[in-house]
Write a protein that binds this DNA or RNA. Structure first.
Lengths: 342, 342
DNA sequence: CTGAAAGCGCTTACAG
DNA sequence: CTGAAAGCGCTTACAG
């Protein structure tokens, strides 16, 4: 274990000064403080009592306003807390974005928080551990959308397959002119869903009919997509919309414009909350099991923690990833293409 | 400050045994351990380092499954975390219910967690500090529905006034036969809303037309209320429904039964999420500013913490309560009573 | 602003 | 199962 004596030696200073720096007390020359800080980082210093009480799990929440109100985050977090409380862990919430989430910062934060491990709720490229992250040997699970293949443990939605399945369903019920409404490239989930969409069309030898890509993924953006699409000469007979807010806005605006779903157009979307099922025309959707993913992530994390307790010497565990295939729920926003159309 | 020496003396034991008990180590006679535990409770013992690092706010979350998915809780929590993170506090989540929330347990838990203060999200009688609680001198804020008058700090919705205002609005647009659909008495918010409803009718010298009280407050319960009401000979021309899920279920089922809102019946509800505004017939509702309440609660808590730091000797601060009047948003589920009706 | 040294709170190896 | 005593990690009053 590293003590302040080690830090004092490494920083060429005394335990008194180290103690002062640790506790943020005034009266240490900036250069000295800097040396001490560096030594603490290098030697992974943590006060003795923090080493002793590691009963907390840190949950990293995407750092934007009202983040917890998103159904996606709320449901995952709900699964995490329900499970962690049962296991006797406390949950410590922390905001994060890619900038403060490189492996070094992450490790230091976990130490500072006396955390037994961490759960990262991933969203898009802004709220994701940086690409070169390697979390091996650090108990962690990333939950949400897939990031990369190795060096991290993840529970993620198979967005590619979800996009593929949604599209395949539309093809199977006879549609040949299928468009897509999506969020711009920053978002990993939307991107993978689009790729799945393209793959399904390719296999069926169909062209993309209309592809609308929006700057944000809100209800209002969905509304504007509907205005755009229905002001064209022709529109597709079916549409994949890559998240629920876009789909809700789209469907509401379509209705205002006198378009009937599913008579005039079929829509498949991806849902997080109960909302799509409660609209005037309940929507056909790929259903994300966010709550269960939170549970699964917490269980996986606990396994890691237990394992790392058992064999301190054990080499790096191979990364542990679980891909989740999500089901299609057919409701009223889709229908078979009428064979003969004038 | 209380140290293990004080505990050892009080429990008639030695520091070695106190240390063993503190750290849950085996090899202490149960009776001895019990004496030590009692002494630690009596003397408010906490290890020295916990006294030093009080940078956490404990948030007590009603302890039921999927609690965080409720829009009400998620939005309050969202306001709390957004504000606390800015202030540099960590958020520690803890489940609670009335049983484990008497003042003594609460105090011990805060000590154990090294918490600077606590926020309690109140829901109903099951998830509320017990009635005789006195939290004076303990930094805390209860946020949600009003509990009692003295000895606690609260930010709460004025549910009575909300119920009154919703009903008054229906009276003002000409309705005279007004019913209410509500959740059973355990829930403080629903109860107060009902009382406000009755008061408004009383003032207008009207009788309650139909009062349906349900065992739970879900969408399905709302549906069953609609089936019950519309199978009667006569039904009211307007209805107050005391929460959004009941109202959503009610309106969906009414539609299925061929009843048109607002032509056949006007509905006012109370909303937490965006859902009521996105239904086929967007609902007129009293809008709860949960997010802002979370912010206000956190700010109030921080004031208390700062004050208690300044004057350690200061006597108990008088309790600090803020009542929030919530606004009515008129949408499409209500209309003026047609004066002449056959 | 710094460090040697005394002291504090807690833990633990040891003897019973 | 217990306690006296040595020891560990950290803090702080003091002297420079």
């Amino acid at each position: 274990m590293t003590t302040i004596y080690d830090i004092a030696k490494a920083a060429n200073s005394s335990t008194a000064s180290v103690s002062r720096v640790m506790n943020g007390k005034a009266g240490v020359k900036p250069e000295t403080a800097a040396r001490i800080h560096k030594a603490m980082g290098d030697l992974n210093f943590q006060p003795r009592w923090r080493v002793m009480e590691q009963n907390r799990l840190v949950v990293l929440i995407p750092n934007y306003k009202r983040a917890l109100e998103s159904s996606y985050i709320a449901r995952i977090l709900s699964g995490i807390t329900d499970t962690a409380f049962k296991m006797g862990y406390n949950i410590q919430l922390r905001p994060f974005n890619t900038k403060n989430c490189n492996p070094k910062h992450l490790r230091q934060m976990l130490i500072q928080e006396a955390a037994a491990g961490c759960l990262i709720i991933s969203l898009n490229e802004n709220y994701f551990p940086s690409a070169d992250i390697d979390l091996t040997s650090l108990p962690h699970v990333i939950v949400g959308h897939k990031q990369k293949d190795n060096g991290i443990n993840q529970i993620f939605i198979d967005d590619f397959k979800a996009g593929y399945d949604a599209t395949k369903y539309l093809i199977d019920i006879g549609h040949q002119q299928i468009g897509i409404v999506s969020f711009s490239q920053i978002d990993i989930g939307h991107k993978a869903r689009c790729n799945g969409f393209r793959k399904a069309l390719q296999e069926a030898k169909l062209d993309t009919n209309e592809s609308i890509e929006l700057d944000d993924a809100s209800i209002d953006a969905g509304r504007s997509a509907a205005r755009h699409l229905f002001n064209l000469q022709k529109h597709p007979t079916a549409l994949v919309i890559t998240n629920e807010d876009l789909a809700i806005g789209f469907q509401l605006e379509a209705k205002t414009m006198g378009i009937t779903v599913p008579n005039d157009i079929s829509i498949v979307t991806f849902e997080e909350s109960d909302l799509p099922s409660l609209l005037d025309t309940p929507m056909t959707a790929m259903r994300t099991p966010s709550y269960s993913m939170g549970i699964a992530a917490t269980r996986t994390l606990e396994e890691q923690i237990e394992n790392s307790k058992k064999d301190k010497q054990a080499g790096p565990i191979e990364s542990l990833s679980e891909s989740i295939t999500i089901p299609l729920v057919v409701r009223k926003s889709t229908q078979k293409l009428k064979q003969i159309k004038i």
